[in-house]
Simulated assay, not measured.
Amino acid sequence: MGLFSRFTDIVNANLNSMLDKAEHPEKMIRMIIGEMEETLVEVRSTAAKNIAEQKTLARKVKTTQEGVAHWHDKAEIALNKGREDLAKSALAQKHKCQAELTQLNEENVQLTDLLSAIQEDAQRLQDKLSEAKRRQDALRLRQESAEVRLKVREKAVIHNIDEAMAKFERYQQKIDHLEAQVESYDLTENKDLSTQISDLEQDDNIEAELAEMKKKVVNG
């Protein structure tokens, strides 16, 4: 089922209100434009039929006018020939053509008024359709803008994550440096201890050798 039930619903529709209340404005505007375009096709089709009918009517008017002139001439000829009876018959045909011509002219006036109304309706509908397409363009621009802004935000989030990871890496490197300093102190401390023990062992060797030399001197 369509949004609109008749032509006046479309031209009187408040697009802004409809779109503001719509859950999905972009879908709503597509539906509105679709129905407007279909209605415009129908209006133009009706106009084309009436224009064709008016052309046919114009040919009938011309033929009937010629008939009026034809029977008028025949009446004059009959009267000039002294045939009043034939002149009356010719005038009767002329009046018949005149009556038909009057009816055709009335139909032509009605068709002209109808075509004028259809033209006004088509213009109103075209204006409404143009308004709807402008709103569609505005919605499209809003959507594109929102998508761009979202991408910018997403890139900003990625940048923040990268920055946080970089900070964490620098923090890790700082910890690694501190641990290396501790290990270097431990390594240095271990070397000092080894050196001290070696020195003690060397002192013992010297003392032992000195004691041995003293024995040799005493016994010598």
Rank of each mutant, 00 (worst) to 15 (best):
R6E: 10
T8C: 01
T8E: 15
D9M: 04
I10V: 11
A13T: 06
A13N: 05
L15E: 03
L15R: 02
M18G: 00
L19A: 02
D20C: 08
K21G: 04
K21M: 07
K21F: 05
H24V: 11
P25R: 03
P25L: 03
E26D: 06
M28V: 06
I32S: 00
I33M: 04
G34H: 09
E35N: 04
E35T: 04
E37C: 02
E38H: 04
T39H: 00
E42N: 07
V43S: 05
R44T: 03
R44C: 00
T46L: 13
A47T: 10
A48L: 09
I51F: 12
Q54N: 07
Q54Y: 02
K55Q: 15
L57N: 11
L57F: 04
A58K: 14
A58H: 05
R59N: 14
V61P: 00
T64N: 08
T64Q: 06
E66N: 14
H70S: 07
W71F: 09
H72F: 07
A75D: 03
A75W: 01
E76C: 03
I77R: 14
A78Q: 02
A78N: 01
N80S: 10
N80P: 01
G82W: 03
G82T: 00
R83D: 15
E84C: 03
D85Q: 02
K88T: 08
K88M: 12
S89W: 07
Q93G: 02
K94F: 01
H95Q: 14
H95L: 10
A99P: 00
E100C: 05
L101K: 06
T102P: 01
Q103R: 11
E106Q: 13
E106K: 11
E106G: 07
E107F: 05
N108G: 06
N108I: 01
L111P: 02
D113I: 11
S116K: 08
I118E: 13
E120P: 04
Q123V: 06
R124W: 07
R124S: 08
D127M: 09
K128T: 04
L129Y: 07
S130E: 13
A132Q: 02
D137Q: 13
A138T: 15
R140P: 00
Q143T: 08
S145G: 09
A146V: 03
V148A: 15
R149F: 05
K151T: 12
K151Y: 04
V152K: 15
V152H: 12
R153F: 10
E154T: 05
H159W: 13
D162L: 12
E163N: 15
R170M: 11
Q172G: 14
Q172T: 08
Q173E: 11
H177M: 07
H177P: 00
H177S: 13
H177R: 14
L178Y: 13
E179H: 05
Q181H: 09
Q181M: 08
V182P: 03
V182G: 01
Y185A: 14
D186A: 09
D186G: 11
T188A: 14
E189M: 10
N190F: 08
L193P: 00
L193G: 01
S194T: 10
I197A: 11
L200V: 09
E201R: 11
E207P: 03
E209S: 15
L210C: 12
E212A: 10
K214M: 10
V217T: 05
V217W: 04
